[in-house]
Write a protein that binds this DNA or RNA. Sequence first.
DNA 1: CCAAGGCGTTAAGAAAGTGTAAAAGCAGCG
DNA 2: CGCTGCTTTTACACTTTCTTAACGCCTTGG
Lengths: 221, 221
Amino acid sequence: MSKALIIDDEQQMRRLLRMVLESRGYEVCEAADGQLGLQEAAFHRPDVVLLDLGLPGLNGIEVLKRLREWSDVPVLILSVRDQEAIKVEALENGADDYVTKPFGTAELLARLTVIQRRRFTRQSAEIVVGALKLDLLHHEASLDEVPLKLTPTEFALLKVLAEHAGRIVTQNQIIKQVWAGQTSDPSEGLRVHINHLRKKLGETGPRIVNEPGIGYRLEEA
Amino acid sequence: MSKALIIDDEQQMRRLLRMVLESRGYEVCEAADGQLGLQEAAFHRPDVVLLDLGLPGLNGIEVLKRLREWSDVPVLILSVRDQEAIKVEALENGADDYVTKPFGTAELLARLTVIQRRRFTRQSAEIVVGALKLDLLHHEASLDEVPLKLTPTEFALLKVLAEHAGRIVTQNQIIKQVWAGQTSDPSEGLRVHINHLRKKLGETGPRIVNEPGIGYRLEEA
DNA sequence: CCAAGGCGTTAAGAAAGTGTAAAAGCAGCG
DNA sequence: CGCTGCTTTTACACTTTCTTAACGCCTTGG
């Protein structure tokens, strides 16, 4: 049985969600603001979090960031309509999916199931893109079964790209994930590391393609 | 079934609109001036408002502003020809679209459908207009599942248009959103970027239609 | 009919972003 | 201290994108 944590300031919404979730066999706990939400998350270790973006005090994005500092728990965002920018920001900061209020219970449950399963399978300690293999557990990379010697940042960078292989990863997303919580400004250095990676990947492996003004994309060879 | 509120001082016009709308299954209420219009809107909570700009007393723009203080209801402006300045002002004050008198009923109904549809769709960080798909998270665009290569400004521009697909976006609105916080004057360059976008969208996809003196409208193919 | 303004289109220069190399900081370590 | 390996900074050539300007077309109004 799964534990769900609801972080929403509206009592009405919490009650509705609790009903829906409990009818599906979830064990439910609630928090009325971000501060409490983080405490609850730390204490109860939920299997999934439902997070309202329009929180008083600590806002939703902040809660998400703090949560992501120590937890991989799947997070479903509850947002009001027409807030595309905020939704995107939430997804970039590690949210797994979101629904816009008002939502149907069927849809809510479907998305919950999806993100929990995804998170489960994603825990595989390997990422494979064509001939490239990343072993997250041992921090080892190989190309055509030949070990690749990567520095820590190179590995982190390649990991971000490989996780979204075939799709564009924004420079901001890269920087957020590779240089998380650091002070120095990596905006210049990113190009250098990309350069190093390309050399190590050589001609045979996946290519790192630049999308000017936007970011990079790892393409299977 | 939808409720429509007609705010127009000409009885003849109200009668015509009522006929057209009721034949389409709308429930109709009327108001002969702005003051009454606001009262009716508050009381009946219509799903769409048809607002004449040439009202006696409280003028159309004023009514729109007051209405927008507490309601998101879609508003369709009824205006006479050659009032570009006023139309622009209305659109920038939250009107959703307009038709110029005299208008065809087909056009009227089409516009009504478009502006009402908007509020309910949209469930992801994607914007879909016919064959066109914009992925805001990855900054990727595709047409018929074929990737489109867009520059950053092209993407931003198309995003603004697509967000309001089927409706007019004034040049000011476009510029504000695409060139937010920049110093240079893009008023000339807008035409160039529109041109580029049109080429990339080709014949098959949605069309970018110009409304002279006002702005642009993205029309589903 | 002409004149004027808005628009589409094109081309070229300006600006911004990118690839690359080399050197300069910065730890850990013998 | 002087290595060594990694990261960051700096510099500059190169590519892509953006802006600007020019011109012709169409529509509107005299």
